[in-house]
Design a protein around this nucleic acid. Structure first.
Lengths: 204, 204
DNA sequence: GAGCTCTTACCGACCGGTTGGTAGGTCACA
DNA sequence: TGTGACCTACCAACCGGTCGGTAAGAGCTC
């Protein structure tokens, strides 16, 4: 009796469910060690598969990374963007967006987000373009929200592009230093950053 | 006549000069491809050496990265920290610091800085601790400058730690998106960010 | 200035191990 | 009788690193 017969098959389980699990396991490893430093063998073993078995589900290493990042972008859009696009007041919209974004990064639920942030130049060619386009949409959303706030006289006049990237830097850099067991809670960080950033935008 | 005899020896040139050149060449490659994805062979060839020849100058790959990062930290401390520590007014000190820091990142002179920012978790053990300690000193410098500004009544009361990390995020995230040929000049970015960040700190 | 030694700066060849990826087979289940 | 799931065995290329060797110069002695 070999490993194949010992291991329980996932019978009726949809194939995509298994693929999802593989993505999550791979994400955990890649998040911890970096894309280039993580071997396919390692990922396969963590999934309870051989390397060849893993390749039954994925096409290539690069494709695996793309799948992880795409899933991460889905997650981000669902947990951040979709939650705030409906808010009518552009300032409140941006504030809510910052809060959601900070907690998305601090709560380590989604290793995929960290991977997207860290491996920002790893994917090249068509795959890279695909992810970049989705990121760009977020930047544009921020820029236009800032512009809207300016037009409505809700905030003073600033460069929307600089504001958008300052917003992003403030919020996303968090992944490099935040520790859940540190002296600052994620709410404190989020509140503090919202206070800092939006006090700088107020009309006097 | 083989490659060895054809190649000119660096006779009287100090050994450290050659090492310096190797560090710079290696930094360029690692900056472009990432530490894990850059091979020693590749670095050696870019230096006009064989791999064994390269190992005449360095101890190991990890050590090479440490040397690059240490040099980057030297550069940073010399071009940013040393230029501003003497400024008496803490707000002016922080403003100057932000300006210097932005231009250090935007002007691609120093690939070493980008490597320090990107490979923030690559070095482990004693080497990692060494670099981390120097980074930590910068955070503390920012925190205490903010605290000093608060104590003197120059800015409103905020959490110095959150302010320091917001400062860093704003300034350092730049390495992920800034392009010299983009629509924003580095001065525009620096000025815009200083305006945004410090307007958020002013006393009302 | 010939002869000697010591040092620096490298090179070609090689090490054990790992890389991403694949061909071809086996097995359970429908 | 498929078909999807998964395996063993294997590939060429590459990994970081080391080995013994060597050409060229520096410094000293006689």
């Amino acid at each position: 009796m070999n490993a194949a017969t010992k291991r329980r098959r996932d019978d009726t389980g949809t194939a995509s469910l298994r693929t999802q699990a593989i993505l999550e396991t791979a994400a955990k490893l890649i998040c911890a060690k970096g894309y280039a430093a993580t071997g396919m063998q390692e990922i396969a073993e963590a999934c309870g598969l051989t390397k060849a078995g893993l390749y039954h589900y994925i096409e290539s290493k690069e494709n695996l990374l793309l799948a992880i990042m795409s899933y991460g972008m889905d997650l981000f859009e669902e947990q951040v963007l979709l939650q705030v696009v409906g808010i009518e007041d552009p300032v409140e919209r941006l504030k809510a967006c910052m809060a959601k974004n900070v907690t998305l990064v601090t709560r380590g639920w989604s290793k995929e987000i960290t991977i997207i942030l860290h491996e920002h130049a790893t994917l090249t060619g068509a795959a890279g373009k695909q992810i970049n386009a989705r990121k760009k949409r977020y930047v544009r959303f921020l820029e236009s929200s800032v512009q809207e706030a300016i037009d409505r006289g809700l905030v003073r006049k600033v460069d929307p592009t600089v504001a958008a990237y300052a917003f992003l830097g403030t919020v996303l850099w968090v992944y490099k230093w935040f520790l859940p067991e540190g002296k600052l809670s994620d709410e404190q960080v989020a509140d503090g950053m919202i206070d800092l950033f939006f006090k700088g935008l107020e009309v006097r």
